[in-house]
Design a protein around this nucleic acid. Sequence first.
DNA 1: CGGTAAATTTAGGTATGCCGAAATTCTGGA
DNA 2: TCCAGAATTTCGGCATACCTAAATTTACCG
Lengths: 241, 241
Amino acid sequence: MAARTHPPGSDSSSVQDYVKTIYSLSEWRTEPVTSSRLAARLSVANSSVSEMIRKLAELGLVAHKPYRPVELTAEGRRLALAMVRRHRLLETFLVQDLGYRWDEVHDEAEVLEHTVSDTFIDRLDARLGFPSADPHGDPIPTPEGAITLPDARPLDSFDDGHAGRVTRISDEDPQLLRFLAAEDIGLGSVVTVLARIPFGGPLQTRIDTGAGPRDFSFGDELARSIWVESVGEHAGCSLVP
Amino acid sequence: MAARTHPPGSDSSSVQDYVKTIYSLSEWRTEPVTSSRLAARLSVANSSVSEMIRKLAELGLVAHKPYRPVELTAEGRRLALAMVRRHRLLETFLVQDLGYRWDEVHDEAEVLEHTVSDTFIDRLDARLGFPSADPHGDPIPTPEGAITLPDARPLDSFDDGHAGRVTRISDEDPQLLRFLAAEDIGLGSVVTVLARIPFGGPLQTRIDTGAGPRDFSFGDELARSIWVESVGEHAGCSLVP
DNA sequence: CGGTAAATTTAGGTATGCCGAAATTCTGGA
DNA sequence: TCCAGAATTTCGGCATACCTAAATTTACCG
């Protein structure tokens, strides 16, 4: 059987970063991936993104018509998932074996994912016991590039009264992760949406981390970063009729 | 106290590679480090080395007069030893924790040494129990850049009859490492130089790996790659009066 | 001491990936 | 329908690090 490899040119760090970022921007939400969203996420100029997209299209990693959003091809998706696998296995290793805190791992993994070998990743996977999710709850793709997203939604999408278990927290913002860790909020915490007061304002929630419930008020960014698996409706405090 | 950092510009992979290579070329032998030796070791053109040496001189990492060999400054030596420390700790980790064989680790470490953080290296060091040598017997510099070279000499420098314990094997040639591993020759093996027959020809040796002595005949490259700590003269088979 | 071969440096050019500024295309409201 | 503002692409440039080929310098030998 043929070894599963990636097309020539896809060994460039930049190519890998762009492809992985395109995937990441559409992993949890389905908004189209535009040049400017990519530029913002990668901290580069729009013109740099334009150039790179042309290159990615030539490599067969993305489909793109000028002035339109970009989409990964099957080939691009395979490469992206390979990078995501690397990133998440590395994060898991840093936490489990090297004692990193979960807010420290993102940047280190971001660099290492481009430089470790396939062998390294495979041995890491085995040593970690073939984990299915990283420390932030993000699922780890299989070596073949299969991934199953948990049935979770961001906290800000829940109506008043809904309750759920935290299954994922975005690893993008270390400060947010530090705050949550300090408050002992993590994967498995049970959160109930109390209300949004005033309408459109901060989200009032009650969170049980195992040591009794406490109340928190979350801004938009925070509420979008915490992903919750529904465990049913909590009666009695809905403000919506 | 001020954090020990390196000069601006020394975060380039290439700069790090050149500086580390200059150090390596003079770590065990004292021959001058010329452009062409550097070019050969780095697999780049002589002209590339010339350009980079000018840059290194500007950065204060090397002292250099045109058409003369190059030498590290104190600053350059500090950077080189930091890279050597990274390389050797990574090799030790790959063998001890990820089950790499000693002939597999060099290339992987070569890439990773440029991308892991200081934090990563410090935590690795602690996890490995602050090892003093890597799997090939190369000493690991301290975080402060101190290193003590063992009192060893390459096998090809011994006279007939000398005996010693193997304390270091160059990690540059994976093929050589595989051969030695297959023959069960490693650090700690006891080797006795029998003779050089014909004069200047292959080196005849007797090696005891613990399971009884066997005889081997080594070519020049091999004999230069195995480093031995003298344990006294073995009488009776010297061909030199 | 001169001349040549070897080592080294300089000169000119390539590829990647980034930038700001200018041109182009799209989009929504009047 | 038209047009202004936003988004995107194109254009000309910069930095790094590499190359080959052409100078230059060194070192050695007759």
